[in-house]
């Protein structure tokens, strides 16, 4: 079975609200798929239900051909890397970037950092341009740097399937550049990537397929859709800080593949 993700007639209810219904979706090996949609359309919920973080109330989702709903224990978790929407910084206890990244080496069978894990963790931080911040406490890093730590934590697993939930929301320019470059590398290495995005922004040239959700249903599955009126004019200025069209040229320059850990 070459489909890494296959979703059939998926339904998710949270409380009395139906968040997703009738979702059908397959993602094959090596695809880079953007999951788009307005706020509240169910993008994050879809990604979280794939990982079993939200209970599925109808239909099924399969990862690597294994049902998330009924065979959760059989899912090959080490092959999956996840970057949550807002990486939890944690509370009072300080933790270094490296300590957080090393938790990415764990899975259902492995509860300890394996031999050589530290070197892998450092390499993962290096790949997101944070090699020099390995021993910095997480709470002293900027939001964008924390986001990169979360990405390194997923990459250290050397996943075949990488799922990212709004990795570009509210991050600084170096993080956007790092991310665009990383994505190009991942693509060249044949890693399957699913990204929840509010808008394509600087990674637009790297995306071949977009799935658009609207009110909990798939409204589009294919190429990059045309922007809605009022969202794509040449002089359209986004009020949100996280979009940054004017930076696109810089980011393109930065898209040169580099090797991963």
């Amino acid at each position: 079975m070459s489909d890494l993700i296959s979703v059939t007639d998926l339904r998710v209810d949270l409380g009395s609200a139906t968040i997703l219904r009738g979702i059908n979706l397959t993602v094959g090996e090596g695809e880079v798929v953007a999951l788009l949609g307005a706020n509240g359309s169910g993008k994050s919920t879809l990604m979280r239900s794939l990982l079993g973080l939200v209970p599925i109330t109808g239909g099924d989702a399969r990862l690597f051909g294994t049902s998330v709903r009924t065979q959760r224990r059989q899912i090959p978790w080490p092959r999956i890397g996840y970057v949550p929407q807002r990486a939890a910084v944690g509370s009072g206890i300080p933790a270094t970037a490296l300590e957080v990244v090393l938790t990415g080496l764990l899975n259902d069978r492995r509860w300890h950092v394996p031999r050589g894990g530290r070197a892998r963790g450092l390499a993962a931080l290096e790949s997101v341009d944070l090699g020099d911040r390995a021993n910095s406490p997480l709470h002293q890093l900027s939001g964008g740097q924390q986001q990169r730590v979360a990405i390194a934590r997923a990459l250290v697993r050397r996943p075949d399937l990488l799922l990212l939930d709004e990795p570009m929301a509210g991050v600084d320019r170096p993080t956007q550049q790092t991310f665009a470059r990383l994505l190009a590398t991942l693509q060249s290495e044949g890693i399957t990537v699913g990204i929840v995005l509010h808008e394509l922004g600087p990674i637009r040239p790297l995306i071949q397929r977009c799935v658009v959700l609207r009110h909990g249903q798939v409204a589009h599955d294919g190429g990059i859709p045309a922007p809605a009126p009022g969202h794509g004019d040449a002089d359209h200025e986004h009020v949100h800080l996280d979009h940054g069209h004017h930076e696109r040229a810089d980011v393109h320059e930065a898209v040169t593949p580099r090797s991963l850990p």
Partner: peptide
């Protein structure tokens, strides 16, 4: 002994679940 695993669930429970940790 279980420092890394207990740290993982205390630091970011959602991520810990996505790694397959019980």
């Amino acid at each position: 002994g279980l420092r890394t695993a207990l740290f993982a669930v205390s630091q970011d429970e959602e991520f810990a679940r996505s790694t397959g940790l019980p």
